[in-house]
Simulated assay, not measured.
Amino acid sequence: MSRPQDPHRPSFSFGNPFKMILPKGSYLSPKLLALLNTFELALAERFRNLKPKDKECVLSLSWMKLAMELLCQTHTDIKTIITELELPVCDWDDKWIDVYFDNSVKLLDICNAFSSELSRLSQGNLLLQCALHNLDASSSKQFVKASSSLDGWRQRISSKNPRLENCFAILASLTETLNLPKVKNSAKGKVLMQAMYGVRVLTVLVCSILAAAFSGSANKLVDLKVLDTCLWAEAFTNVQDSINGEIRNIFSSGRVALLKELEGVDTSIKKLHPVVKDGLGPVEAEALKNYVLDLGKAATKLSQGLDILAKQVDGFFQILLTGRNALLCNLRAGISVPVPVHKTNKVEGKAVR
């Protein structure tokens, strides 16, 4: 749990999560070891790919889209590992199943919160389109309407989404499950638990960064300490320190921290407002034309970014939901997981086991 005396830099210390899972002398067959190593090396590469060339890009919709895409790929890989392990549900420990269902419900809640925020921002984008439409006219009456729309957009963007606050409590809870259940006499179970540990670390990292970026607060960024014997540990620590450090630098600099695409729109609006409100002379008319053009480009980039990220979040939601459904089906039927299921429409609220 985060330390109350240091709210600006919560740190989660779990000791050695594999002390019970991979005790000294544990043996994995060459096949199982190769399966685990392949997964962990792929995860290490994904952590490396998360590190942006431009540090400020971490506060961008384009980086968030990449992060969610890598997260979806990794959760899909777990399904592949389960299939290749040929580990029937009857051999799953009840604790593994409980942790899986509990974590997946929490992640579904996070997805719903992110979707809510993306929808809120998209609705604000309608105000930009209205303003651009009115700015095409030369009437002072239309300029008043445009100015009102721009004011409305800025008020919407500066407001807070209460659903995001719950994300931080959920993320804190998710970190507590990283001290994995004990695995007895099951080499396949040890491989599965270690792979799932890596997935959960990536999930907490990505969701923590997105929650901080959406909420405009770095106070509750999660700093994880992971087992250094994992093949992806160095890559993870490198990207976590780099991204969390840069976000904290941006937020502590006194600058209003907006998503990069939102910042582009806000910059254009700041240039437009004085021209629209003070009236137009020959010089201002030419400036207005350029400012409107810039705002149009920024608004389009924002709209496209929101749409793409919303699809990625929905894709992650579907992966979680179908994974839960597959495990439920197999628990009832007593067969190996996963079982293909039809895509389920997104729902609001918690999915119930």
Rank of each mutant, 00 (worst) to 15 (best):
L205K: 03
S303A: 15
K297M: 12
P338V: 00
L71F: 12
L36C: 03
T322E: 14
A213M: 05
K65M: 02
N49Y: 03
P4W: 07
R353W: 14
K79H: 04
G349T: 08
F14K: 05
D98N: 06
D307I: 10
L126P: 04
E45D: 15
C230S: 15
L178A: 03
N345W: 00
L210R: 05
L178D: 03
P10S: 07
G15E: 04
T38R: 13
L262Y: 01
N238P: 00
L293C: 12
V99W: 00
Q318S: 15
S148L: 13
T177R: 13
N238H: 07
L70N: 14
I170E: 09
L280H: 07
L135W: 03
S115V: 05
G124I: 09
E117W: 04
G124T: 11
I250S: 07
I269F: 03
F316G: 05
N244H: 12
L295K: 00
L128F: 11
A233R: 09
I170T: 13
L171Q: 06
P4R: 10
A333L: 10
V201G: 07
L22E: 12
R156K: 10
S104P: 00
V276W: 05
K220A: 09
K184N: 13
G264C: 09
K24I: 06
L192A: 13
D151C: 08
L70I: 11
T322K: 14
H75S: 12
V352I: 15
A172C: 12
N37F: 02
L70F: 12
A218Y: 10
V105P: 02
R324A: 11
N179A: 12
L280Q: 08
L43N: 05
G279H: 10
C72Q: 14
D307Y: 11
L50S: 08
G296A: 13
D266Y: 11
E86L: 14
Q312L: 01
Y100V: 13
L180A: 03
K301G: 15
N185C: 12
V226F: 07
L192F: 14
L107W: 13
K190Y: 02
I157V: 14
L36V: 03
V339E: 02
Q240E: 15
A195S: 14
L35S: 01
P162Y: 05
L33F: 00
T267A: 09
P30Y: 07
A137I: 00
N37I: 01
V204I: 15
F214G: 06
G124W: 08
I247D: 05
A113K: 09
M20V: 10
V201D: 04
I319R: 10
L328R: 09
S215Y: 08
